[in-house]
Design a protein around this nucleic acid. Structure first.
Lengths: 135, 135
DNA sequence: TTTTTAGTTGTTATAATATAACACTATGTA
DNA sequence: TACATAGTGTTATATTATAACAACTAAAAA
């Protein structure tokens, strides 16, 4: 198996929740996830949050911090949730993961004025998506 | 009063809350703020959140999204809360606002692969601060 | 095989964060 | 004055997230 793409064998709950998020074109919130998986036997918030925590940890999903919502990672280069960038439309709330080599290199190499480098970052851009720009 | 050079004259509640955040070396959370200003007559969460919303809007403070906490802006160039960058220590939780001309220019001019530019961004770097690096 | 271990599960309860709705007040300005 | 805009005080409630504990499971070590 390719090291770069180590499979994390998801447990039942993790799989149910990942599949739901992965199918969704847009970020889902924890309690909306809960509502959607209750018929599959996941009844309590903690069951959802535990699966979310794990999925974030292994990089299968990302949290959109400014929205308290979760989106599947569609960027093969971020196997671990350490370097994330998103664009967020302030009207329709559409969220897109940005995968730009230039951006990720720039940020991974960024040093602050004390010369510190950082091991992780999260960047959220806000503006209007194409559709909303035209309205 | 002349609107052209309108200072944002803070109201009583806004001023109480801004002063508290401004004096704090580290970000404060809403309910910790509430606790600290109760002796000054601010008794309800909404009074705090309303002041916080306004202070964020006019750029006097910023919200650290990943921590649900608020910090005073010490970066004279961000008059409006539209371009923010922070470093966050994952051990001691120390937060520092980054003011790097290079970084802000790079991000302000960033275009995604559809050529879209964005009007605002928020960037949070995570790692260890100097003190915690030495431990 | 048995035992151990780390990780996950299911559950109840509760903490922490944030907003809705409504009546009222202050202030600037037409 | 009257109007518009923004802020206030209040109660209630919605939303997001974690604590604590007992039990289960799979994989690896003995």
């Amino acid at each position: 198996m390719n090291k770069m793409h180590k499979e994390h064998n998801l447990t039942k709950n993790q799989k149910i929740i990942f599949d739901l998020i992965d199918k969704s074109p847009q970020p889902l919130k924890a309690y909306s996830i809960l509502y959607n998986v209750q018929k599959k036997g996941i009844k309590a918030p903690l069951q959802v949050y535990r699966a979310l925590d794990k999925l974030v940890e292994i990089g299968k999903i990302h949290k959109i911090e400014s929205r308290n919502a979760f989106i599947a990672c569609h960027n093969s280069s971020c196997q671990v949730a350490k370097a994330t960038a998103f664009s967020i439309c302030e009207i329709c709330e559409k969220v897109t993961e940005i995968s730009s080599t230039g951006l990720s290199k720039y940020l991974a190499n960024f040093k602050d004025k004390d010369g510190m480098k950082y091991s992780k970052y999260n960047l959220e851009f806000f503006g209007l998506c194409k559709k909303c720009t035209l309205k």
